[in-house]
Design a protein around this nucleic acid. Structure first.
Length: 259
DNA sequence: ATGGTCGCCATGCGA
């Protein structure tokens, strides 16, 4: 079973690339972030033609998340319960698997803009609410996967130029502590369960030829609860779509589970 | 030292 995540930076613009990628990579589950479209504009028929079901939480212009799956999803949750937020960043679903139900959460964590800004404070508050909610979700669902754009590079190994990035948004200590608090719940960063190429990243700024220079960060992650981490056989980043014309600034991340 | 690119939608803003 393959689970994947991809921040597409506008599903309107990226739909053909997402469809191409799914045809070449027929994963069981694909979590999408930054749809940037209203609910009524979600292109469900295009995904149905490829044999996928879909659930989504959209809004005009900003944010927006979706879960595509081979099997129909149940028990849908939109947003972090008890965290009032007009920004559509969270979608949780339950999916069947040979090992029993799988809880899949698609997350588009706040960017934070700049350390010390209002958006940075919102990011840290949001992470705290996420941790509290995931703690409860883990009690309910032993097989939990949280996939998405976390907007945090967990360690300096996830940063192309740690000296220049030190203390900046996406790598600052409070953000890393907020991310580590998710791992402390018992979730594993599936990418780090395996040997990986040095300088592996999932996001490259559109500016300054960042992709050509591999000047990136690893901020898209697949976190797995212990039973799923034990079943995880591989995790990798597919850089190919980032080299497309009109690419998203993020690459897909894929985890392979033996369930 | 500064600005650089996208996508939104028509202007600056968010990333």
């Amino acid at each position: 079973m393959k689970l994947a995540t991809w921040n597409v930076n506008s599903l309107n613009v990226r739909l053909p690339q997402v469809l191409d990628w799914l045809r070449a990579n027929p994963v069981d589950v694909l979590c999408l972030q930054e749809l940037k479209l209203a609910d009524e504009k979600f292109p469900l028929p295009a995904f149905q033609e490829l044999g996928y079901h879909a659930e989504w939480a959209g809004q005009k212009t900003y944010n927006g998340v979706a879960v595509l799956s081979r099997e129909p999803a149940g028990d849908k949750v939109r947003g972090i319960p008890s965290f009032e937020d007009p920004q559509q960043r969270i979608l949780g679903v339950t999916l069947p698997s040979p090992a029993g139900d799988l809880r899949v959460i698609c997350a588009y964590c706040p960017n934070g803009q700049a350390v010390g800004s209002d958006k940075y404070a919102y990011k840290l508050r949001w992470y705290e609410a996420l941790r509290d909610w995931l703690s409860a979700e883990l009690d309910l669902h032993p097989r939990l996967a949280v996939l998405g754009d976390y907007n945090v590079a967990p360690t300096d190994a996830d940063v192309h130029n740690p000296e220049r990035w030190a203390g900046q948004v996406l790598v600052s200590e409070p953000e890393r502590a907020a991310f580590d608090a998710l791992l402390d719940l018992g979730l594993a960063d599936s990418f780090r369960l395996f040997e990986q190429e040095p300088k592996s990243f999932s996001w490259w700024d559109y500016r300054l030829n960042a992709f050509k220079r591999n000047a990136g960060l690893r901020i898209d992650h697949i976190l797995l609860s212990a039973p799923l981490a034990n079943a995880c056989r591989a995790c990798g980043i597919d850089k190919a779509p980032r080299a497309n014309p009109q690419p998203s600034d993020h690459a897909p991340v894929v985890a392979t589970l033996e369930l």
